[in-house]
Amino acid sequence: MSDISEYAVLTKNLTKIYSSGSIGVKSLNLSVKSGEIYGLIGPNGSGKTTTLRIIATLLKPTNGEVYVYGVDVVKNPLEARKLMNYLPEEAGAYRDLTGLDFIKFMLSLRFTGRRLEEAIGEAIEIADLGGDLKKPIRGYSKGMKRILALSTVLASRPKLLVLDEPTSGLDVERSIYVRNMIRRYNREYGITVLLSSHNMLEVEYLCNRVGILYRGSLLIEGAIEELKNRVGGVNLEEVFLKVKGEVH
């Protein structure tokens, strides 16, 4: 039990087979250490989102075990959710609410009283939307909605942050801002981050360790420099292509 709680995320033979018969992930053994930023990379349909959704308690695995800080996410999902927060890909917000109301609503599901006020203030600061925060979300751009959703997730300061394609659809400026925020929260508050991305440069910039998923299986995982040396690639893109090539 002690080795399980050492990890922020630990999966043992995690398998997800959908009712249609298609395989989401296959015997996945993944370990994310506490305090690190771990990147899951892989092409579309490789099982990144499935993995993150299972960890975030949105999907149930067909087989295998998943622990978040030692808590079994299948047996005790509510306790697991208290330890983490999840930003889905293309996460939006309620159109009829203002940005400020959305922040208040999402954070009121986790905090009350003074802690809630502090979290709201923090989220407002992260969102950095100025006067637009008091306007209905239906008028927001995609980037604004994404930043707004991220602000509530970061301000909740969970022990584990699960981010599915955090910069997907954002312009360069906003992407940099989001990356910096993720890094800042990881460093300042020791928040463990598990993220998925198509953007290898982003992963290289942000992550301490990465795992390459392909067709539901983890091909390789480790520190970025270690992987480059092991496979012989100058960057993550080359590592990915070489590892994928070995499979074929």
């Binding site: 949105l58 959710r81 939006g92 599901l109 986790r110």
Partner: peptide
């Protein structure tokens, strides 16, 4: 509508029954 607004998964991931 909540699903279309893409806030649904965020809601489901919150620590509430």
């Amino acid at each position: 509508t909540e699903k279309v607004e893409k806030a649904f998964e965020m809601l489901l991931a919150q620590p509430i029954p």
